[in-house]
């Protein structure tokens, strides 16, 4: 039970922060299939930062935390591409997202090998990261069952919880959050009310990139402790599924991510308990996806996308 909660949370939280970014973008009216590419590029910049620091300094504790900031900046900068394509260049948002993903995979693959060869003098397609320390909160972790939430927590989990509260507040209660939601539902009305639709959407996409970068860095640390093309394992698409499941709202999306994370770790645990051969792990891996699909059958009747989602906003058009 403990492992289910610990592993489930360390998978669900990065997924959730990526999904929050997706919600920002999509509620402002920009379909964001680019999350996969954004998280990859964020993880790439974070990984490059750690690798460069490791070359010139010895591995200290602080690059770990700084690398998340760098990953957020990297993801945000790469998101400019999606923002420019969809807002300035009026590209089809779905297509732009897919193209950003393709460019991200190609660019990070090329840059990682090239930088490894020319800066670090080694033929490799990955940047090694250090193993993250894990923390246990003293008193809280002694509570039976739910105490596991506070056991062996990755540092990024704390960070994600803090970011979640901040971004939930901004989304629900700040002026910007309100503008953002207005732009996604009726950009013409929002414009008439004096909101700059382009600017609001632009920042929403950049935020989604930054949050995806943090999520990607978390996955790079927790799953493989290196940055390699393996970071593109579909978490971005999964986050999109989670946010659609959560009806484009932050709280239900958290719920969706948790279900997903726990179903995943639960399936693994089940495998271990039944002592099945490792080939069965593939079968166990399908459980979270089957479960999500089944739940969707019951819960998507009332699902409604933001009304102007995917609409290219053109001020001069009526």
């Amino acid at each position: 039970m403990e492992t289910i909660i610990i592993d489930g949370l360390s998978y669900a939280l990065p997924l959730f922060i990526i999904a929050i970014g997706g919600i920002y973008s999509e509620r402002s009216g920009i379909i964001n299939l680019a999350l996969e590419g954004l998280l990859g590029f964020g993880a790439f910049t974070g990984g490059l930062f750690v690798a460069l620091l490791g070359k010139y300094f010895t591995h200290a504790g602080w690059p770990i935390y700084l690398s998340f900031l760098v990953a957020a900046i990297g993801g945000g900068i790469f998101a400019l591409l999606h923002a420019l394509l969809t807002i300035k260049f009026k590209a089809n948002q779905v297509i732009s997202g897919v193209v950003v993903n393709i460019v991200s995979v190609a660019l990070t693959g090329f840059l990682t090998s090239q930088i490894n060869a020319s800066v670090f003098d080694q033929p490799s397609n990955r940047f090694l990261l250090s193993v993250l320390p894990r923390y246990t909160i003293p008193v809280l972790s002694d509570i039976p069952v739910i105490g596991a939430i506070f056991k062996n927590v990755y540092p990024f989990s704390f960070m994600i919880v803090v970011l979640f509260i901040i971004f939930w507040y901004i989304f629900r209660h700040s002026r910007y959050g309100m503008h953002l939601r207005a732009c996604g539902d009726n950009p013409q009305a929002a414009d008439a009310a004096g909101i700059n639709v382009y600017r609001t959407r632009f920042w929403a996409v950049v935020i989604s990139g930054a949050l995806a970068g943090i999520g990607g860095m978390s996955f790079a640390y927790s799953i493989s402790t290196n940055f390699s093309p393996a970071v593109y394992m579909g978490a971005g698409y999964l986050a999109i599924a989670a946010l659609i499941f959560g009806n484009w709202n932050i709280m239900p999306t958290l719920f969706a991510c948790l279900i997903f994370g726990f179903a995943r770790s639960g399936a693994y645990q089940l495998m271990r308990e039944l002592a099945l051969p490792s080939s069965f792990s593939d079968l166990a891996m399908t459980i979270p996806y089957v479960l999500t699909l089944l739940l969707l059958i019951f819960f998507s009747k009332t699902n409604k996308a933001p009304r102007a989602l995917g609409e290219i906003y053109d001020k001069s058009k009526r």
Binding site: L33, G234, Y237, L238, I240, A241, I244, F245, S279, F280, D282, L283, M285, T286, Y289, V290, T292, L293, L296, I297, S300, K301, N303, A305
Partner: peptide, 27 residues
């Protein structure tokens, strides 16, 4: 019938197909 967004359904089916087939091939 169920108003499930085709993108989500397709992504889920992608994974289900990928892992199930991997299981059958490996075994």
């Amino acid at each position: 019938r169920f108003n499930i967004n085709e993108v989500v359904a397709a992504i889920m089916l992608n994974y289900i197909i990928q892992y199930t087939i991997s299981f059958f091939i490996n075994t």
